[in-house]
């Protein structure tokens, strides 16, 4: 598999990303450079392009213009108006979604081993052993045989994270993974993400949970109107934002009058 950690250039470089759905321009020239070990939290108003940014980065959406390189290697480019995705690079990125993350017809263990066996041709026995070890680590060892419908929302998201980790990703994307959870289940999912952070897993996280953002981010990006408005350490962007637009948003989120 393509190893994005070998050379010392930026991990991800996004340049001039443009994307529209019909007349609605969602990304309008987005430039982000991400270093290794960066844990980027993306915040911003709805429709500001946060989720689209993650979906583009995962290779799930076409773009109208711009390019992305990963570990110094071209990943997504636009040629003659067509989006070209290097699927080998894409396989080194993992993603967890807000809803319907697990495959309902497969048990937890089968969810974990599907891609390693089908995509990487790993043997079932070895994949199952790795899967069981990961589940044990996340406190889910006893649920290996359960089906997604038998799990709580928090357990489902933790399994989804484990499933993505089975492919040894060089970058993990989290798209509002706790937004649909009951409040008392949020912490167990965030705990797993903090563990990954402690192991220096590069991440891009879209969340509305500002407390969590402050705790996990090495860097916060405020996206609005399809561009990066402010980009800096969490203390700056969440605490003392420089840009007026960021300040307005942060104040509204924290219910503080400006």
């Amino acid at each position: 598999m393509f190893d994005g950690t070998r050379d010392q250039t930026a991990l991800v470089r996004m340049e001039g990303l443009h994307k529209s759905y019909g007349a609605v321009k969602v990304l309008q020239g987005l430039d982000i450079e991400m270093k290794r070990g960066d844990r980027v939290v993306v915040i911003g108003p709805s429709g500001g392009g946060k989720s689209t940014l993650l979906r583009v980065l995962m290779g799930l959406e076409k773009v109208d213009a711009g390019n992305i390189s990963f570990g110094g290697r071209p990943y997504i480019t636009v040629r003659n108006g067509k989006t070209v995705i290097d699927t080998e690079v894409r396989r080194s990125i993992g993603m967890v979604f807000q809803h319907y993350t697990l495959f309902p017809h497969l048990s937890v263990l089968q969810n974990l081993v599907l891609a390693p066996c089908k995509v990487n041709g790993e043997g079932t026995a070895s994949a199952k052993a790795r899967a069981q070890a990961l589940l044990d680590r996340f406190g889910l060892g006893a649920r290996a045989g359960a089906y997604p419908a038998q799990l709580s929302g928090g357990q489902k998201q933790r399994v989804a994270i484990a499933r993505a980790l089975m492919l040894d990703p060089k970058l993990m994307l989290f798209d509002e993974v706790t937004s649909a959870l009951d409040p008392e289940l949020v912490a167990e999912v965030e705990q797993v993400m903090l563990e990954l952070a402690a192991q220096a897993m590069p991440m891009v996280i879209v969340t509305h949970d500002m407390w969590f953002a402050r705790n996990i981010a090495s860097r916060v990006i405020f996206c609005a109107g399809g561009v990066v408005v402010e980009d800096g350490p969490p203390e700056q962007v969440l605490g003392k934002p420089i840009h007026e637009r960021t300040r307005e948003f942060i104040n509204r989120v924290f219910h503080i009058r400006a």
């Binding site: 894409r90 396989r91 993603m95 979604f97 319907y100 495959f103 599907l114 089908k118 995509v119 492919l167």
Partner: peptide, 27 residues
């Protein structure tokens, strides 16, 4: 079949055929 299921299959590196056979059709 929820769009997220197809997305998850792509994110896991499954080819369109694999995603159809192992994810979309069973559901």
């Amino acid at each position: 079949v929820p769009r997220e299921q197809r997305d998850a299959a792509v994110a896991l590196g499954l080819s369109p055929l694999q995603s159809t056979l192992h994810v979309i059709l069973p559901t």
